[in-house]
């Protein structure tokens, strides 16, 4: 049981780290509008050259393999609550690492979502 929680927790942490790395990388790009196919290619070239995005992709590759294991080994509905924990972690990291400004309604909304996910998963 403890092993399961630790393993699923690790998977959640890796996913979260991937999200944060991706966002950190994208934050260093200038805001550009995408209008045509050429813009999309240019955007992708810019994105994949970022060190943080490369780290994020590596983390997601790892996450995907581990996630397949989780899906296979455990009843996925039992691991849903840990996914909602991920949301609170993301908010904390957004606030203190990415320096985003979080108005209080966003915390309330996230708390509602967490509660909702737990209710959906445990029924």
């Amino acid at each position: 049981m403890i092993g399961t929680i630790l393993f699923v927790g690790l998977v959640v942490l890796i996913q979260m780290a991937g999200q944060v790395c991706l966002k950190r990388g994208l934050n260093s790009l200038p805001q550009t509008a995408i209008q045509g196919a050429g813009d999309i290619v240019r955007f992708l070239l810019m994105v994949f050259r970022l060190r943080y995005v490369q780290i994020a992709l590596l983390l997601w590759g790892t996450w995907y393999l581990l996630y397949l294991t989780v899906l296979h080994k455990f009843d996925i509905s039992k691991s849903f609550p840990l996914n909602s924990l991920d949301l609170l972690l993301i908010l904390l990291v957004s606030r203190f690492y990415l320096r985003e400004i979080l108005p209080w309604p966003r915390w309330v909304g996230a708390a509602l979502i967490c509660t909702g996910v737990v209710l959906v998963a445990s029924s």
Partner: peptide, 19 residues
């Protein structure tokens, strides 16, 4: 219980996207 959960998630998402 699941319906309540679904409603909470929809409400939470709406609040977050309006901030």
């Amino acid at each position: 219980q699941r319906w309540v959960g679904v409603a909470l998630i929809f409400t939470g998402v709406m609040i977050c996207s309006l901030t």
